Simulated scan of single mutants.
Amino acid sequence: MTLIFDNPYPDLTNIPLGINIDKSYVMALLLECLETASPTGYTHTLMNRLSVEAAHLGYKMERNAKGCGYIRVKGSNPNSNRVIALSAHVDTLGAMVRSVHTNGTLRLTSLGGFMANAMENEYCTIHTSSGKSYTGTIMTNQPSVHVFSGARDLKREESVMIVRIDEVVNSKADVEQLGIRTGDYVSFDARPQHLPSGYIKSRHLDDKASVSALFGLLHSMREYNWQPVHDIVIIITNYEEIGHGASFIPQDITEMIAVDMGCIGDDLNCKETDVSICPKDSSGPYDYFMTNRLIALAERESIPYAVDVYPHYGSDASAALRGGNDIRAALIGPGVHASHAMERTHEQAIINTAILLAAYITE
């Protein structure tokens, strides 16, 4: 094998792409994804729905043993030795029943990394192993200032968070009669809204905004009859929030773009209308040539973008590299405000993320 240590990509064309991404399709799919519970470890319902959607678009979603999905698209250049993976994840933050209190409330253990106060007073759904579901509200064990003198100053942490179940339960036995037990999943209500201004505010835009962008690419290929130059593999992962979503990927992949939310705040440049291009996160730097290629393509396509370093962040590309896969890797995605809390992005960022990806796979 010949090792190449300089720029492996051909000169960039100066001709704008001119590919259309159907905003109405992308937004409709996004809202449906947001309304479908998929806390990490409990993603089968949404993964099955996306498998059906892929088939509707004329593609097959294959699944690996842990449920990750792969959609392959043939490139137009039979002589290309590049196989490009584009990944996004359906798993979201959530919780699991740790135990049942004697008063009939639930103690939680978190799934994914978030602040306890970010889920306080949120509506939720308990998904039992028998297939039944029950609604509830997440709160502290001192939920009222009229009763608890320390309610305002109580440190919000996992040990004080409970679920008040919307059923007549007063004891642990009452809860067990419902079929709720330790290990049942708890999803947070997303409460998505697509506003006339173009903003989408919801929980779990991380990373369902990117999933909808990737399916927008597939939809565009079908509707407008175009294909990538190189073979691509759309990877939909289901364990990203706990770090091993794309730890294993098909061995023919040579480069990978993780498509995940861009962060906003502190010394960062990204806005909710921007496409984020991240040269480095907590896992280290991404591929120099891929990152610069994406920047050049964003400028060619007149896409508003920002380049930011994310010190408290990891991606599916990070997991793939740590898993020993011999790939180049990059990270982009729509700008999302208040990540892992009540998030917000803009339709422009999602559509432009898809356009930037289209530019990359057609060069």
Results as ranks from 00 to 15, higher is better:
18 G>L: 06
20 N>R: 14
24 S>L: 10
25 Y>V: 12
30 L>G: 15
31 L>T: 12
39 P>V: 02
42 Y>Q: 07
52 V>W: 00
52 V>D: 09
55 A>D: 02
64 N>G: 10
69 G>D: 03
74 K>M: 10
80 S>P: 04
95 A>H: 04
96 M>Y: 03
109 T>D: 07
113 G>P: 02
122 E>C: 14
132 K>T: 12
133 S>V: 09
136 G>E: 01
147 V>H: 01
148 F>A: 03
152 R>N: 06
158 E>K: 07
161 M>W: 01
171 S>D: 10
174 D>W: 05
179 G>V: 10
189 D>C: 08
191 R>K: 11
195 L>D: 07
197 S>K: 09
208 K>N: 13
208 K>V: 13
209 A>P: 06
212 S>V: 11
221 M>R: 02
221 M>P: 03
227 Q>C: 14
235 I>R: 01
241 E>L: 10
243 G>N: 01
243 G>E: 02
244 H>D: 00
249 I>M: 01
258 A>M: 02
265 G>L: 07
265 G>R: 08
266 D>V: 10
272 E>T: 15
273 T>I: 09
274 D>S: 14
283 S>T: 01
283 S>V: 03
289 F>S: 11
290 M>I: 13
293 R>G: 02
295 I>L: 09
302 S>M: 08
316 D>H: 00
317 A>C: 11
317 A>S: 15
320 A>S: 13
322 R>G: 12
324 G>C: 09
328 R>C: 05
333 G>R: 03
343 E>R: 11
352 N>D: 13
360 Y>T: 04
